[in-house]
Amino acid sequence: MNTKLYEYILLLADNPLILGHRLSELCGHGPSLETDIALTNISLDLFGQVRNYFQYAAQVQGLGKSEDDIAFLRYEHEYRNVIMVEQANKDFAWVIARQFFFDAYHKPLLEQLAGSNDAQLSAIAHKSLKEVQYHHHFSSEWVKRLGDGTEESHTRMQDAINHFWPYMGELFEETALEKEMKENGTGADLVAIKPVFKSFTNEIMAEAGITVPSSEWSHSGGKKGTHSEHLGFILTELQYMQRAYPNMTW
């Protein structure tokens, strides 16, 4: 088995898995029917991507496991998502800030992966990119709407941006595996994505009247398997059926 490729797929797939989970918690509880439907759509897209990645990971692993074994039957430290996507749905501004930063990273990431020398990863990236362009538009429009809407929405949007700001750095922290995958032509170049991310998010925040936080410091650990306290609770729900009723077909 190509362990490195398998591990790299987890690094790509666990972010949409956990973010998709967070968004799915909101289904039926959105601030309007239209936003409820739109957020569910994003969640659906992310889970669709996750399925493509994990089906491929299972194939690469070659142990006869399924997408569900990989999604549901790992321990906390084996998940490779960044801490940012674990953060709770405190209010709609938090949901939007988390989505905005993730989409601003996700779109250029997929643009790079579309050119991967791994045909399967390239195909997944091509397919996902169409969806993520919509997410990218949706979340940035909402940052503007909330930032430049009412006094209350502005305060909440600023608070959300301030909260998520120190979680962003981890997205661009290049692990040894990511560096190696970049160099062998399989993976994305995080160093190149960062300025694209910065200039886009700065432009939107300026338009939204949001003050860009100045701190450069960032939380990290998720990519290496050290998560926030949230992940355990997420996994409790995510894995509930698979853990409580093992080895059954659903």
Binding site: H21, S24, E25, C27, G28, H29, L33, E34, D36, I37, T40, N41, S43, L44, F47, G48, V50, R51, F54, E67, D68, A71, F72, E237, L238, Y240, M241, Q242, Y245, M248, W250
Partner: peptide
């Protein structure tokens, strides 16, 4: 049904359930 989305037993079932609940929102609309 929304209560079960986060606990669905497989990715396939999760996606189908999410889409179903979303359809209901669309019907409401």
């Amino acid at each position: 049904e929304g209560n079960w989305i986060t606990r669905a037993p497989s990715l396939k079932r999760k996606v189908t359930l999410l889409a179903k609940v979303q359809d209901e929102g669309g019907h409401g609309l």
